[in-house]
Computed example of a mutant assay.
Amino acid sequence: MSYQELTHHISKNLKHMHKESPDLMQSFHSLSQNALKAGVLDPKTKEFIALAIGVANRCDGCIGFHTKALVKLGTSFEELTEVLGVAVLMGGGPSLMFAANAVEAFHEFTALQQPTE
């Protein structure tokens, strides 16, 4: 499954959770919005932190959503690989495997940002 398909699939399933647990989902949405908004740290830096934690915790859904956000924020591949290096440092060999997945997600979401001819 591609990261575009994965994030779409997760989003679809989260709609079911929102229907059954609206208070929980609204609380999580509010937490996410507040945690990622500009403050002393800019949103891009916060997304880098979230991606690194997602890689270290081996969460493909986290990789998909945070990489997608980083592409929208104009992240370069060089920036991404530096962040992934820190994630691998903190998570060891298994995180290296998920860092490779984040590279795949980056290329996929970057391609979606390219204008079509």
Rank of each mutant, 00 (worst) to 15 (best):
G74V: 07
F48C: 00
Q4E: 13
K19G: 02
A38V: 06
A56M: 11
F109A: 09
T67E: 06
G92E: 13
D23Q: 13
D23C: 02
A38N: 14
A102I: 02
H66Y: 06
H18P: 00
A35G: 00
V40Q: 10
A100R: 09
V40G: 15
A102N: 02
T116A: 09
E20V: 07
A52R: 01
Q113I: 04
P22A: 05
L51S: 02
H8E: 14
A69H: 01
F48G: 00
Q4D: 14
H16E: 14
A99T: 05
G39I: 00
L14M: 07
L80R: 03
V86Y: 06
Q114A: 15
A102Y: 00
G61P: 03
F65V: 12
L112A: 12
A50Q: 06
K72C: 09
L6Q: 08
F28Q: 08
A52S: 15
G74S: 13
G64A: 12
Q26E: 15
L70D: 00
T75P: 05
I49H: 03
K46P: 02
T75L: 10
Q114H: 14
K15E: 15
P22S: 11
G39V: 02
V103W: 07
Q113W: 03
N57A: 09
M97W: 08
E20W: 11
Q4T: 12
L80V: 09
L36F: 03
A105S: 14
K12I: 06
E78P: 06
F48M: 02
D42S: 04
N57D: 10
P43M: 02
L14Y: 00
K19V: 05
L6C: 06
S95H: 01
A35E: 14
K19H: 13
H16Q: 13
E104L: 12
E47H: 13
F28D: 04
G39K: 02
V88K: 03
S95K: 00
K15A: 12
H9A: 04
G92R: 10
L24N: 10
V71S: 01
K68L: 11
P22Y: 08
A52M: 10
S76E: 13
Q114Y: 08
I53P: 01
V103Y: 04
T45I: 08
L36D: 01
L89G: 15
F65M: 12
M25D: 11
M1H: 14
K44A: 03
G39P: 03
F77T: 06
E78C: 08
M1V: 12
K12L: 07
E82F: 06
A105Y: 11
P22I: 05
V88H: 04
G92M: 13
L24R: 12
A52G: 12
N34T: 05
Q113T: 08
A56R: 10
K37F: 01
L80W: 05
L89R: 11
T7F: 01
V88I: 14
K44I: 04
G39D: 04
E5Y: 08
A87H: 00
N34I: 06
I10N: 03
H29R: 11
A35I: 09
A102S: 00
H16V: 07
F48E: 01
G91C: 12
F28T: 02
P22H: 09
P115D: 09
F106Q: 11
H16W: 09
N57G: 07
A50P: 02
K46G: 00
P22N: 10
K68T: 01
V88E: 03
S27T: 10
K19W: 05
S11K: 15
L96H: 11
